[in-house]
């Protein structure tokens, strides 16, 4: 190591990856950001408008309303994931870590939806909840919910469509937090738990006193992964509700709003500059989340840990 005059080999090792990564990830990202600072005229020329597009997005009623609507819907989407997907994932991981027989079978099954395409999962659930197929209504009738306005049209009601889609997404993605929690739980030395059990501690106590404190760092990782995934989501809404994210834009999230802005819809053409602006806002939101995680959460974690 560290003895050659010019480290050609380092360049050779690094160059291909850095080149592809810079060219197809960093450069397009910067180009998009630059593009969001311009507006195209009718004759196709581009004029520099500085932050004009961002101001328009946040103040012009035609843009402000759909933007904040998509943003808050996305927040709801994220909150549902945080409050259901991750706790249930943790519960499943704890059950799987409790040395029962056949744990690997359960683990393999529960992870299966995660490897399927969101398009297929969304479409399959749409069929199951469809009023035409005789699955959902007979089930509701048996439960005595046959007259419930919301239950009979889960994907059609403004009050329930977003929640339903979030639940479908939770159903699909629960495997990821489950696996990460499971990994963290397995790494806990079994002597610790056995010692506590010998002392007569209940499983509940063992979990809160020993297991949970040791997997707290994983909780942070899961949270930030969920955050990035959710604010970047698109496929599920597009596949089940279409690009208009109905009813009445109640399932519109940042991804679908970006798609519609960029590509346009029905009789309206898209606006690439505003599309880039929406993407710029998404980048800002995600970066804010990541920084919060790195500086808020992880710093504190380092202090807590040994």
């Amino acid at each position: 190591m560290r003895r050659k005059p010019f480290p050609w080999h380092i360049t050779v090792f690094l160059a291909p990856a850095v080149l592809i990564y810079t060219l197809f990830m960093i450069y397009p990202m910067l180009a998009s950001l630059k593009f969001s600072l311009y507006q195209s005229l009718d004759d196709g020329r581009q004029v520099f408008v500085a932050f004009g597009n961002y101001i328009k997005l946040l103040t012009d009623p035609n843009w402000k309303e759909p933007f904040w609507n998509a943003f808050w819907n996305n927040v709801v989407f994220f909150v549902i994931h945080m409050s259901l997907q991750n706790p249930i994932g943790l519960l499943l991981a704890v059950l799987l870590a409790s040395n029962i027989r056949g744990a690997w079978i359960y683990r393999t099954i529960i992870f299966t939806p995660t490897i399927l395409s969101v398009v297929l999962v969304g479409f399959a659930w749409k069929l199951i909840l469809s009023p035409t197929w005789g699955i959902w209504f007979p089930l509701l009738d048996r439960l005595g919910l046959g007259d419930n306005e919301v239950a009979i049209a889960l994907l059609g009601n403004e009050s329930s469509a977003l929640i339903t889609l979030s639940l479908i997404s939770v159903w699909q993605n629960i495997g990821i937090p489950m696996m990460l929690f499971l990994a963290a739980l397995i790494r806990i030395p079994s002597e610790l738990i056995e010692a506590a059990q010998v002392d007569g501690a209940s499983s509940w106590r063992v979990f809160w006193r020993i297991q949970f404190p040791l997997i707290v760092p994983t909780v942070g990782i899961v949270a930030i992964l969920t955050f990035i995934g959710n604010f970047n989501a698109f496929d599920l809404i597009y596949a089940t509700q279409g690009a208009l994210a109905g009813p009445n834009y109640s399932t519109d999230i940042m991804g679908t709003f970006f798609f519609r802005t960029f590509f346009g819809f029905q009789l309206r053409p898209g606006d690439p500059n505003m599309g880039a602006t929406v993407a710029g806002m998404m980048l800002l939101i995600i970066l804010a989340g990541v920084l919060l995680y790195l500086y808020g959460w992880q710093r504190r974690m380092e202090e807590v840990q040994f």
Binding site: F24, Y27, P28, S32, I228, N232, A276, G280, L283, I286
Partner: peptide, 14 residues
């Protein structure tokens, strides 16, 4: 940390 989708506009033009 940063999803590549956000560079879609740039990627498409490139």
């Amino acid at each position: 940390m940063v999803p590549i989708r956000l560079g879609t506009v740039g990627i498409l033009r490139l």
